[in-house]
Computed example of a mutant assay.
Amino acid sequence: MSLQSHLAEIPEFRRQNKNFRYFLVDILAISVLATLCGADDFEEITLFGQQKEALLRRYLPLPAGPPAVDTYRRVFAKLDVTRFNACFMAWMQEVLPAEAAGQLCVDGKTLRGSGAKPLHVVSAVASGSGLSLGQVAGQGKGHELGAVPDLLALLDLRGALVSLDALSCQPHVAQQITKQGGDYLLGLKANQPTLLAEAERHTAALPDRQAHTRWAYAGDGSPVRYRVWTQSDLRWVDEQGRWPGLQTLVRVETSRHPSEGQPAVQQRYYISSRALTPAQADGFVRGHWAIENALHWQLDVTFGEDDHLLRHHHAAQNLTLVRKMALNLLKQDPSKRSIKNKRKRLAWDEPFLERLLAALCQPTT
């Protein structure tokens, strides 16, 4: 099914108003296409529809022409967030089946322009592809932990390793992941003091020869050494019974070596229900950064999400889903260009845009 076909399955919620002039699927499809081409808010989406009306009419009915800006505002404010997210997730399950997802990274991001009590959206990203798979929102970062189980419940976790930061290092989160057929990799900090102390104690004496070591460079050019140890002998871990399927403690040592002064050393700890070698653990710990680099950074920098002031929370959630749809489409394009340049090319190169339209929409007859 095309993305347009999935959008067409969202029930028309305006039936009580017999006078509406624009089909819901047209409004949503234009919003995604406009966002692909560089539009970041409703005014720009409206301008795109007006400028590309002739092209859009080949694929969308548009019986009354392209919608006006107030139509987008009203529709996105009233559109059922749960149904729109379900449409998005159904499309992504078709694009990326569960067995191909691999590592799923879960983390939250605040929509800073969504008011005095901003929304905090928890998202899931497939690490290997960088594709976003779904979202659940809460009001304020303090509600992230409550949103995580709701998002996990929507995902197919069978065979996946789910990575989360230390905020979600909770026994009930670990239990839910394993019950849904997945494995967990959880950051471990002081919110679990007993387990943290045991991880520090049981990994401190591991010899250097057992570490997986790699070097990289920081933004200022300083070399950084990463060393990763894993401990699978957990007979002396008193906390093991609270964590279903716990198999591995992970210790990551990061030492930055500036040109002057002493190295700065940091220790981080993780727990996992999967048996991991040091090299595997290093790969999954690094893989978790996909949600920052492939999603949050793109939404903020490339799509200007933090600069968009949209106080209506329903509209803000729906519009961030549109951005994720557009970002996923851009990531699936095989051309070797940045996301920013792909958006510009779609805006400037109409034959390129029409090829995408033909793949997403059925031509009108």
Rank of each mutant, 00 (worst) to 15 (best):
M1Y: 04
M1Q: 11
S2I: 10
Q4G: 00
Q4N: 12
A8M: 04
P11N: 15
R15T: 08
K18L: 11
V25C: 00
I27P: 10
A29H: 00
I30E: 09
A34C: 07
G38L: 03
G38H: 00
G38V: 05
E44Q: 11
E44M: 08
I45M: 06
F48Y: 13
G49K: 06
Q50G: 09
Q51F: 08
L56S: 05
L60S: 06
L62C: 02
L62E: 06
L62A: 01
A64C: 14
P67G: 03
V69E: 12
T71W: 00
R73I: 15
R74T: 01
R74G: 01
F76I: 03
F76K: 01
D80Y: 01
V81R: 13
R83S: 09
A86Q: 12
F88K: 03
M92Y: 04
L96Q: 08
P97I: 03
A101E: 09
G102I: 10
Q103V: 13
L111T: 05
S132C: 15
L133I: 04
A137D: 10
G138M: 05
G140A: 06
H143F: 14
A147K: 12
P149K: 00
A153H: 10
L155M: 04
L155R: 01
L155H: 03
L161A: 10
V162F: 04
V162W: 02
L164F: 09
S168A: 15
C169E: 04
V173D: 06
Q180N: 02
D183Q: 13
L188N: 07
L195D: 07
L195F: 07
L196R: 10
L206N: 05
L206T: 06
D208R: 14
W215L: 13
A218E: 08
V224K: 05
Y226T: 14
Y226P: 02
Y226I: 10
R227W: 03
R227D: 07
R227N: 02
V228T: 11
S232D: 07
S232R: 14
D233A: 12
L234I: 05
R235E: 12
Q240L: 12
W243S: 05
Q247I: 09
T248A: 08
L249W: 00
Q262P: 10
Q262W: 08
P263T: 00
A264R: 09
V265W: 05
V265M: 04
Q267S: 15
Y270V: 11
S272W: 01
A275Y: 07
A275W: 10
L276S: 04
P278I: 03
D282Q: 12
H288F: 08
I291G: 05
E292A: 02
H296F: 08
V301A: 07
F303C: 05
G304D: 14
E305T: 03
D306I: 08
H314F: 12
A315M: 11
A315R: 01
A316Y: 07
L319H: 09
M325W: 14
L327N: 07
N328C: 05
N328M: 11
P334H: 02
S335K: 11
K336Y: 06
S338R: 04
R345W: 07
A347W: 09
E354G: 14
R355S: 10
Q362N: 12
